[in-house]
């Protein structure tokens, strides 16, 4: 009997192994596990056996049945895998072909730098102020301590619209506007924006360019605060190793006035062509707000004081990215712009 069982098992296994398709496998399964399977047939003829023998045979037969079913399920897995693999092979693609050209776009480098500067100052508690580009002479000059006939007006020949209105030559009139609006309260702002001067456009001049003005007015602002603030700015912009230095200068609306140098970020201050072998690069102008400016907007200079600074955005951007011609910013060649793709 046992021999008979083994024979059935071996025959079944051989047939399963030979099966090439799921259909065939299903047939085999039906044949060996159905009601008329060889096992079932065999079990019909066991009446003559003892109870003990019946038990033994029953359990042996079940075991064989289980083994057959296991073999079938293994074979089914095998066949399924083969089928899927064949399908996958048929679906092969060349992953090195280019993807859809969903353009990246870019933010103009000038605005990138403005956003960067804004964020540095927002982090230090500054608000972003704005003002008109078509400005009145009173705000652009007079209230900034530059009366008519003042020699400083020579420094920045202007585009006038009429005797009293001009294209602002600096973002500084926003100082006046902000202080007038703040009406006697402390002020801590930066103001980015376009300014205009009568310059012929060349590699280093542009009749339109961008500045970022900074202004802090309170009762106990010191020049050391100015130095600390600008030092932080330069470290954030050009690296934590940077140092700054002040040099005497002149702006009508600040006193004292200074020119600010940052230690060269290319050579670290040793001297290289970028810093003209001085180790320092001139980046911005700054100073303590002139008492006449404070007086003009109703702040008593004996009580209030402040500092102000102005950054030339193009200059900083050119330094940061190594750009050698300011006209690149306004020609907007996409081969230039695309170099500033991405957000980091």
């Amino acid at each position: 009997m046992t021999e008979k069982l083994n024979q059935i098992l071996n025959e079944a296994k051989a047939e399963i192994a030979k099966a090439k398709s799921m259909l065939k496998l299903n047939e085999i399964r039906a044949f060996y596990t159905g009601k008329k399977s060889p096992l079932a047939e065999m079990m019909k003829n066991i009446a003559s056996l003892t109870i003990e023998e019946k038990k033994t045979l029953g359990s042996a037969s079940n075991k064989v049945k289980q083994e057959i079913e296991l073999a079938i399920s293994q074979k089914r897995n095998e066949l399924e895998n083969e089928e899927i693999n064949a399908k996958l092979n048929a679906e092969a693609i060349d992953v090195t072909l280019p993807g859809y050209d969903l353009k990246n776009g870019s933010i103009h480098p000038i605005n990138k730098v403005i956003e960067e500067l804004e964020d540095i100052f927002i982090g230090m508690g500054y608000k972003i102020a704005e003002g008109p580009e078509v400005e009145i002479d009173v705000f652009n000059f007079e209230m900034l301590n530059v009366p008519k006939g003042h020699p400083a007006r020579d420094m920045q020949d202007s585009f006038y619209i009429n005797d009293n209105v001009l294209m602002r030559t600096q973002t500084s009139p926003v100082q006046v506007r902000t202080l007038l609006e703040a009406n006697g309260k402390p002020v801590k702002i930066v103001c980015p924006g376009k300014v205009y001067r009568r310059d012929d456009d060349d590699a280093t001049h542009s009749h339109q360019f961008m500045q970022l003005e900074g202004l802090v007015v309170d009762k106990n602002i010191t020049m050391s605060d100015l130095k600390g603030t600008l030092s932080m700015l330069m470290k954030k912009m050009f690296g934590s190793e940077r140092k700054i230095r002040f040099k005497p200068s002149y702006f009508p609306f600040t006193e004292p006035s200074v020119e600010v140098d940052v230690s060269c970020f290319k050579c670290g201050g040793k001297g290289c062509p970028m810093c003209k072998h001085t180790g320092w690069i001139e980046v911005l102008g700054a100073g303590m707000v002139h008492p006449n400016v404070l007086k003009g907007v109703g702040y008593d200079p004996n009580v209030w004081r402040g500092f102000a600074f102005g950054v030339g955005i193009e200059r900083v951007t050119m330094l940061k990215y190594g750009i050698d011609d300011i006209r690149n910013f306004y020609t907007n060649d996409s081969r230039f712009l695309k170099q500033f793709e991405g957000e980091r």
């Binding site: 927002i122 402390p186 605060d225 600390g228």
Partner: peptide
């Protein structure tokens, strides 16, 4: 000059 920061406490934001 030293490097200090203004004591003016303001909230910076766009």
């Amino acid at each position: 000059l030293e490097e200090t920061f203004p004591v003016t406490n303001t909230i910076g934001a766009l």
